[in-house]
Computed example of a mutant assay.
Amino acid sequence: MDRYVRSTRRAGGFTLIEVMVVVVIIGILASIALPAYQDYVRDSKRAEAKAALSLVAQRMERCFTESNTYVGCYGGATVNSDSGNWVVSITESAASYQLEADTSAQHSDGECDPMTLTNTGATSPAACW
């Protein structure tokens, strides 16, 4: 008699519906996480540009206190940020300077490219500072 008893145990594995539910959940999580990650990366690159501009501005001001002119502090050179995402261009005259942080083509930040800082502390674009 025992040999004719049918087993009620289910075979192992996942059904198609279970797999599709998991795929949908992963898709929803990815659609939320990816834009948040991109915003985080963009904000960190902007913070890096601000830091690079501030560092060069401090050095320009230190040079001005020593020589009473901004000319010759960097000699119109460019300064790269530590990661290489930004290049700071320096335009200087005897009484003023303007620093411009520009991204490379592969790391472009449309609305905040370039970011500028002057000797008066004026910054642009305002929304990026």
Rank of each mutant, 00 (worst) to 15 (best):
S96T: 15
T69P: 02
I28W: 02
A57S: 13
S44A: 14
R59I: 09
L16C: 13
D82P: 12
D82L: 14
V41Y: 06
C73I: 06
V71W: 05
V41T: 12
F64W: 05
L53N: 09
E61A: 01
C73P: 08
N68I: 06
K45Y: 03
L29F: 06
A57L: 09
Y37D: 01
Y70I: 05
Y74F: 14
I17W: 12
R62L: 11
L55V: 11
T15V: 08
L55F: 15
S44I: 06
G75A: 10
V56Y: 12
A33D: 04
S83P: 02
S89E: 05
V19L: 11
I25A: 14
V79N: 07
V71L: 14
K45I: 00
S31M: 09
D43V: 05
A36F: 04
A30Q: 01
K50T: 08
A33V: 03
P35L: 04
T78R: 10
G27C: 03
S83E: 04
P35H: 08
S81W: 02
R59Y: 03
S54N: 14
R46C: 12
N68A: 11
R42P: 02
V21L: 13
A52N: 03
N85T: 06
S96V: 06
A77V: 07
Y74I: 01
A49P: 03
E48L: 03
A30I: 04
A52D: 00
M20S: 09
P35W: 00
R46D: 10
R59T: 11
A30F: 03
Q38K: 12
S93G: 11
V24I: 14
S44Y: 13
M20Y: 05
D43E: 14
